[in-house]
Amino acid sequence: MQDLKLLAQDNRGLYQLEAGEDLLGWHEVTQGSILPSFEGDATGIANMKQEERNYSHYNSYTATVASWRVLKPVYNRDICIDCQNCWVWCPDTSIISRDKQMLGIDYDHCKGCGVCVEVCPTNPKSLLMFGEHSSFEDALSQWPEKKKKEKK
């Protein structure tokens, strides 16, 4: 369900941000440094999709914050209307959307804040929060029914 075969040579989420023992201390770090975001020439990056770019290992695209998450959003393609509200308000660039279509969630960068669920306009919501360790099949089978409008 969530198998996103977007990227042929995907290098996202290779590193943990909290890198442990081999980090330098504050007195060992070089004063002033340049971190190139891309390998080689970076001209025309703005017109390239993420999967076409050649990210260097300094780019946080290659890092992951998945361990921050307690609840994860699960996406239900059947209900989604591609309004892109979740895309515009996702603080972690974790909603993958190509050609005006929402494809899924980038679980290496999602921190599970739940903003996407809150801004989803469909009935029932096409994104819902589930426990980090619940499987997608379970989550989709528990999806709530459409709520009827209350008559006033």
Partner: peptide, 20 residues
């Protein structure tokens, strides 16, 4: 919003800002 969403993000994930 649909047309806006065809832009390519230049601000990557895995920064350490709080969730939300």
């Amino acid at each position: 919003l649909k047309e806006f969403s065809t832009n390519n993000d230049r601000f990557e994930g895995a920064h350490t800002l709080c969730p939300g």
